[in-house]
């Protein structure tokens, strides 16, 4: 049985022009994908994670037939995304941007009707599907189905984008950052819906995100992409094991202002560990994060407490944290941000 989505060694380069001075422009090749491969099995929720500019959207655009790869191949339900693009488009539902791609002066329902008709849906079947998906994503409940799109909040726009993706009842959903910028309640609604659709057995969902919490919560498998390459692939638990050689220690401390200067260096010297981070939090407290190797944690905590008390600093909380997907992400992507 063919997997729902299969990408093999995808390569994509972009040509950009950089302005140098008033007239001169220089050509620059940007390697967006450098051999991306992964497989998404039917009925699962698959997360493609990566920092900004890592190649997530390029991968999605290739799989959704909107972009041709320079090399490699991709298939959706066995259909080739290059030579059988039309068939692929029939079996996928896509959201590319939650804020674009709708006509402002049309209502949510009218927008769905238009895009449904373009897919060849018509008559009572189209109307039934519109009613169904509007109800499914909660737009009917919010009383927004007959509001003009320009009056929609971001959460409503995201729901409508998902409704459009579901309108023709496709077996595969490919969603590019479907919860970006949404309030926690809207994001949760969409996440729950995606899981429900996948668990019901008839939908496969691929989402891209850089929200680790979301990925940990709903994805069966995840792949982490960075600089155009898949750098990790597996279940969430498998990936967490990649960080099993690390233990995160967290101390919440009240530190006098005059002690803050050079504190990081002092802790590095004291513990002999290099991954130390300070973060100011509420009520003038500071969170100290130290990454240690398993077995070292007790020694490090003891050493830290001794030093903190001897310098009259108040310790409010000490925690030993299991590695999260976010830890894995940060370790693997060396910081997790490209500023894009």
């Amino acid at each position: 049985m063919a997997p729902a989505i299969e990408a093999k060694n995808l390569v994509k380069n972009y040509v950009t022009w950089e302005r140098k001075g008033f007239i001169k422009r220089t050509r620059k090749i940007v390697q967006a994908l450098r051999g991306v491969s992964f497989t998404v099995e039917k009925g699962e929720v698959f997360g493609l994670l990566g920092p900004n500019g890592a190649g997530k959207t390029t991968t999605v655009k290739i799989i959704t037939t909107l972009l041709l790869p320079d090399d490699g191949e991709a298939r959706v339900l066995g259909y080739d995304v290059v030579s059988e693009a039309e068939k692929v488009r029939e079996v996928i539902g896509v959201t590319l941007s939650v804020e674009k791609g709708f006509f402002w002066k049309l209502t949510g329902r009218e927008n769905l009707k238009y895009f449904g008709m373009l897919r060849g849906l018509k008559g009572s079947y189209l109307n039934e599907r519109i009613e169904y998906v509007l109800g499914l994503v909660g737009l009917k409940e919010l009383g927004a189905a007959d509001k003009l799109y320009e009056e929609y909040s971001l959460g409503m726009k995201a729901r409508l984008a998902l409704a459009r993706a579901l309108l023709h009842d496709p077996p595969v959903l490919i969603l590019d950052e479907p919860t970006i910028g949404l309030d926690p309640a809207s994001a949760r609604t969409i996440r729950e819906l995606l899981v429900k659709l996948a668990r019901s057995g008839d939908k496969t969902v691929l989402i891209t995100t850089h929200n680790m919490f979301e990925a940990e919560l709903i994805c069966d498998h995840v792949a982490i992409i960075d600089k155009g390459k898949i750098i990790a692939y597996g279940t969430v638990e498998e990936l967490k094991r990649k960080a099993a050689d690390r233990v995160s220690l967290e101390l919440i401390v009240s530190i006098p202002k005059n002690m803050l200067n050079g504190l990081e260096e002092k802790i590095v010297a004291l513990t002999g560990l290099r991954e130390v981070a300070l973060e100011a939090i509420e009520s003038g407290r500071t969170r100290i994060r130290i990454v240690a190797r398993p077995g070292e944690e007790e020694y490090v905590i003891e050493k830290m407490l001794e030093w903190l008390y001897s310098n009259n600093m108040k310790v409010h909380q000490v925690r030993i944290k299991e590695p999260s997907l976010e830890d894995v992400f940060i370790i693997l992507t060396k910081g997790g941000s490209r500023g894009g």
Partner: peptide
């Protein structure tokens, strides 16, 4: 600029 090229291509239009 509103992303309609992609949205129409996705419907095979």
């Amino acid at each position: 600029s509103q992303g309609f090229v992609e949205e129409h291509l996705l419907t095979n239009t």
